[in-house]
């Protein structure tokens, strides 16, 4: 589903490359943790998947397409196949929960009738039924992240990319979010999650790809965050 072939990324303003000769192959339906300290290249890895950046060398394949060679007008099509969740939620403060989720469908031109049926479904799935009319500031952090996940998943993407989704949440709330991501994974959606949260990685026991200074230093099935239990 996602394949990095000898991918390097060098930002112009920086001395050392953000990614160095990275080779990673992620299958359809996998759940992969991307771990490593700040500045190790996790975010660069995710940005390359979304074609927010181009690799300096090497090929990035996402959903069967060579992302580096994708013409710019095809990029939106790629991004519709990928849901994205961030540490800071990125909700629109002046829109309700329902409107925030519906927005993602409206801007890709989905018909109103479709929106009216799928948005309540996905809100129920993430556990926000009854809170459709709330505004983001009326919700807890965990609930806001659920809205963001609902928005990312409402179009049923094949891939869900999460950049430290639990970074702003307390441990208990984080577990709830992880359960939700696990449920989404069970529907067949490939999930790549960058995280610093050792506890979560150790509990969930999924594949772990560890980056350090832009190099893949570990790629382990059912791995732990950084040390053996």
């Amino acid at each position: 589903m996602i394949r990095f072939e000898n991918v390097s990324k060098q930002y112009k303003s920086q001395h050392s490359p953000a990614l160095r000769d990275v080779n990673v192959d992620i299958e359809r339906g996998e759940f992969v943790f991307l771990v490593g300290p700040s500045g190790s290249g996790k975010t660069t890895f995710l940005r390359l998947c979304l074609k927010e950046d181009r690799p300096t060398s090497g090929n990035v394949w996402v959903a069967g397409k060579n992302v580096g060679k994708l013409s710019s007008w095809r990029v939106p099509q790629l991004r519709r196949q990928i849901g994205t969740v961030f540490q800071d939620f990125r909700l629109l403060p002046n829109k309700t929960v329902f409107e925030n989720v519906a927005f993602a469908l409206e801007v890709i031109g989905k018909p109103r009738g479709h929106i009216k049926t799928v948005v309540p479904e996905v809100l129920e799935m993430v556990g926000l039924e009854g809170k459709e009319k709330r505004f983001p500031h009326e919700l807890s952090g965990g609930e806001q992240q659920r809205v963001a996940i609902a928005r990312a998943f409402v179009n049923r993407p094949e891939i869900l990319i999460a950049d430290e989704p639990t970074g702003n949440l307390d441990p208990n709330t984080s577990i709830g979010i992880m359960k939700l991501l696990d449920r989404i994974n069970r529907t067949g959606t490939t999930i790549v999650m960058a995280t610093h949260d050792a506890q979560i990685v150790d509990q969930v026991r999924k594949r772990v790809v560890e980056l350090a200074d832009g190099i893949v230093v570990r790629d382990q099935d059912r791995g732990v965050y950084g040390y053996a239990h």
Partner: peptide, 17 residues
């Protein structure tokens, strides 16, 4: 920029944005 950022992420076309 918030709205347009989200529009990009969810795959709204350039034209639509």
């Amino acid at each position: 920029r918030r709205e347009t950022g989200i529009m990009r992420l969810v795959g709204a076309s350039k034209f639509y944005i």
